[in-house]
């Protein structure tokens, strides 16, 4: 493991040289992630690593890509998706347009899952899905809609557990170990780089999903990001977090009402 002081120096330098601010990330995870790239890339001395980061923007980008945790799946936590399908989508369906924001979408599995559910509910044509992440590389994968075929069996199981009744294999074409999801699913997706630490609200949404992203932030940053979502959410819109995340410590509970047993909250007043 690298030392605490080394980590703090790196955080300062990355901010000073490139403007990316990791100062409010949870240290336990960040330290493991930085140590991981440090050893992965064969460094022996921290100052070599540090000067590489400082002087080589390409390398700094690689490092940031590697320290963010991008593990994701389709229909992750099927009971969450079941609630979306059964209770939230019918409510959103009454609106003329549905605007959804996936903040921290990683490689996009979550976004394609949502598109499949919208399609099955007959709502995809009037929806728009903004999907953002700090990591530009994962967005490229997300845009392509190409995922490893070895994961598909698990995804098909999750899909069924989330209330899906179609033949899951109708949604993609399998080729050379990859599954390419149909273009009619991605037509309504807009991908762009957005940093939750430093970028502002860019639209008003009816549903915001930010799952398993806040766990990497400290309490203060969580508070700031929840407020950013609050600014970006229409009244009666929904905010959905990961199964172990909460808005409890971040925002007045009179403004939001928790929905069912899932980590979904409805904004009940401005």
């Amino acid at each position: 493991m690298i030392e605490d002081i080394e980590l703090e120096t790196l955080i300062n330098d990355v901010y000073e040289y490139y403007g990316f601010d990791f100062g409010s990330y949870s240290r336990a995870s960040l330290k493991r992630r930085v140590s991981r790239v440090f050893y992965l890339d064969g460094f022996k001395h921290f100052h070599d690593f540090l000067s590489k980061v400082r002087t080589d923007p390409e390398y700094c980008k690689r490092m940031i890509d590697e320290i963010t945790v991008n593990v994701t799946e389709m229909f992750r936590d099927p009971s969450f998706y079941l609630t979306l399908r059964k209770e939230i989508l019918p409510l959103l369906g009454t609106k003329p347009f549905i605007r959804i924001w996936h903040a921290g979408c990683s490689t996009g599995e979550e976004v394609y899952s949502m598109a499949i559910m919208l399609k099955e509910a007959g709502l995809l044509h009037k929806s728009i899905l903004y999907a953002t992440d700090i990591n530009a590389s994962v967005l490229e994968t997300a845009k392509s809609g190409i995922f490893p075929l070895r994961m598909i069996k698990d995804y098909a199981d999750n899909y069924r557990d989330s209330g899906g009744q179609q033949d899951f294999s109708d949604y993609y074409i399998a080729n050379y170990g990859f599954a390419k999801f149909n273009d009619n699913l991605s037509e309504k997706m807009v991908f762009s780089q957005h940093n939750l630490v430093s970028d502002t609200s860019f639209n008003e949404f009816d549903l915001i999903l930010c799952r398993n992203v806040l766990i990497y932030f400290d309490n203060n940053l969580q508070k700031r990001v929840i407020n950013l979502f609050d600014d970006s959410l229409a009244v009666l819109g929904f905010l959905a977090l990961g199964t172990k995340e909460t808005i409890k410590y971040s925002i007045s509970q009179t403004k939001y009402k928790q929905f069912a047993k899932e980590k979904i909250w409805r904004k009940i007043k401005e």
Binding site: S26, A28, I215, Y216
Partner: peptide, 21 residues
Amino acid sequence: APSNYHLLFEKNETLSLDTSE
């Protein structure tokens, strides 16, 4: 520890979660 997350310890005596590999 909840399933599917790594459980980590922070300096301020809180627990944090991580979904890495």
